[in-house]
């Protein structure tokens, strides 16, 4: 009987601790510096890949899980889509904007998933953040160092402060901005087939149609 009470008390205590942890989590997330966040997420993902040979073998379900739980929450896909659309974004209806964001998000997730399977013991070097504490738009700079030697590849994350913490809105690899690269492609699709044409092209691409 006493044992049961003790067990029950323990149970209640762990529930209470869990509730406090959940309540504090958003605060911790909001207060985490953007460079610390990039480091935490990167190291976490690398540790997960290293521990799971299925990911390196290309197991879709496992990759999907890593993407959804660890990476996707750190991105602001609506902002990425708006930036890639440029001035065309304002011409899109809210419904089109929603569809565009969903399709572009899927395309980026798929692309990122492919690069996860390519991970081969690269190390990441985190550069000190050069930004005033009150800034809400920063660039977190890192450098990817291949295990087999060769030049380190600079990989920078443009991040914006939101109510739910810092979010990545562009990735710049070796001076090549992902968003800028898509802007021209999007523009061209819109020129030939309108915004709906772009949505259709993205959807077709996501369904596995080859790039032409």
């Amino acid at each position: 009987m006493i044992q049961q009470t003790v067990a029950a008390t323990r149970w209640w205590r762990s529930i209470a601790i869990a509730l406090v942890a959940i309540a504090l989590a958003p605060i911790a997330a909001a207060q985490e510096a953007p460079d610390a966040q990039v480091k935490r997420v990167s190291e976490d993902v690398i540790a997960t890949i290293k521990a799971d040979p299925l990911i390196q073998a290309g197991n879709e379900a496992r990759i999907r899980e890593v993407m959804d739980t660890k990476l996707v929450p750190n991105f602001d896909f609506a902002k990425m889509t708006a930036l890639a659309m440029g001035r065309n974004w304002r011409n899109a209806t809210p419904e089109q904007q929603q569809k565009l964001t969903a399709e572009f998000r899927m395309l980026l997730v798929r692309t990122y998933s492919v690069s996860l399977t390519k991970y081969r013991d690269e190390k990441i070097e985190y550069k000190p953040l050069r930004a005033a504490p009150n800034e809400t738009d920063v660039t977190v700079r890192t450098s990817v160092i291949k295990a087999s030697g060769g030049s380190p590849i600079p990989m920078d994350y443009s991040m914006i402060k939101t109510d739910s913490g810092w979010k990545v809105y562009d990735v710049i690899v070796g001076g090549v901005s992902l968003v800028t690269n898509y802007r021209d492609e999007f523009n061209e699709q819109i020129k030939s087939g309108g915004i709906d044409g772009l949505i259709a092209a993205l959807a077709a691409k996501n369904k596995g149609a080859a790039a032409k």
Partner: peptide, 21 residues
């Protein structure tokens, strides 16, 4: 192989990346 997955128009994607780089 990344360009294969990422690009809507591979020619344009490679051109933009090259010129940016």
């Amino acid at each position: 192989s990344m360009a294969d997955t990422a690009a809507l128009d591979k020619y344009r994607f490679i051109r933009n990346a090259y010129l940016q780089r």
